[in-house]
Simulated scan of single mutants.
Amino acid sequence: MQVDNSIALMNAQYNSSTTSTLSTPTDALLKEQTDKFEAFFLKQVLDIAMNSEEENGLFEKDAGDKIYKSMYNDTMSSALSGGLGLSQMLFDYLKEGR
């Protein structure tokens, strides 16, 4: 099974260029935190999705599978964060509350 990461990586490059348009340093810190929250949320979703695949796997599991899947989910969640809209929605909500 081969996983295509090109869209996630392209999205990560796009998001890094859009964060430079924030007006104040406080906005930049808030955006960074909302992106991290979105990454955490995505990691939880990916962990659940990968666990369901584990039950019906075709191959034997070894000791490194859980570590590899966790590292993969960390990387994918970081690459995808900021692109779903949850981060932007949370950022706008928290910015209005200040």
Rank of each mutant, 00 (worst) to 15 (best):
K36M: 14
E96A: 01
K69Q: 04
A8E: 06
F91S: 00
G83P: 02
S78A: 09
S20V: 14
D74H: 11
S70M: 00
Q33I: 11
L42F: 11
L30W: 05
R98V: 10
G82V: 05
A8P: 02
E53P: 03
M10R: 10
A39W: 09
S20K: 08
M89E: 09
L90P: 03
A63Y: 10
M10V: 13
N56A: 03
K61Y: 06
G83A: 01
K66G: 09
A63F: 13
N56L: 09
Q88F: 06
E55Q: 11
Q44F: 03
K95G: 00
V3I: 15
Q88L: 05
S87F: 07
A8T: 08
L58D: 07
F41K: 01
S52K: 15
M10H: 12
L22Y: 07
N73I: 06
D47K: 10
F40D: 11
K43H: 08
K31C: 02
S78H: 15
L58P: 01
Y93T: 15
T26R: 06
A28R: 05
S70K: 05
D4G: 04
L22V: 06
P25Q: 00
A28D: 03
G64D: 11
Y72T: 12
Y68K: 00
M50H: 14
G82Y: 03
L80A: 05
L46F: 13
L86S: 02
E96C: 00
L90C: 02
A39R: 04
M50L: 10
M89S: 11
E38I: 12
I48Q: 13
K61I: 13
M50C: 07
V45C: 06
L29C: 00
F37Q: 03
K31W: 14
D92I: 01
D35V: 10
N11G: 03
A28Y: 04
S17N: 05
M76L: 15
F91P: 01
E38Y: 06
S87G: 05
G57T: 11
M71D: 09
K95V: 03
A49F: 15
N11V: 11
R98G: 13
F40P: 01
A8V: 10
S81T: 09
S6V: 08
L9H: 07
E53A: 08
Q33K: 06
L80E: 04
K66Y: 11
T21H: 07
F41H: 04
T26I: 12
M89G: 05
G64N: 04
Y72V: 09
G82E: 00
G57E: 11
L22I: 07
S17T: 15
N73W: 02
E60G: 06
D62Y: 02
L86P: 06
G97Y: 11
V3A: 02
A49D: 15
L84M: 12
S81A: 13
K36A: 13
D35Y: 07
T24P: 02
R98M: 05
S23T: 14
T21N: 06
S23A: 10
S16W: 06
T19Y: 10
L46P: 03
V3Y: 13
N5M: 13
N56S: 04
G85D: 03
K66P: 01
E55M: 08
S77E: 03
K31G: 01
M71T: 14
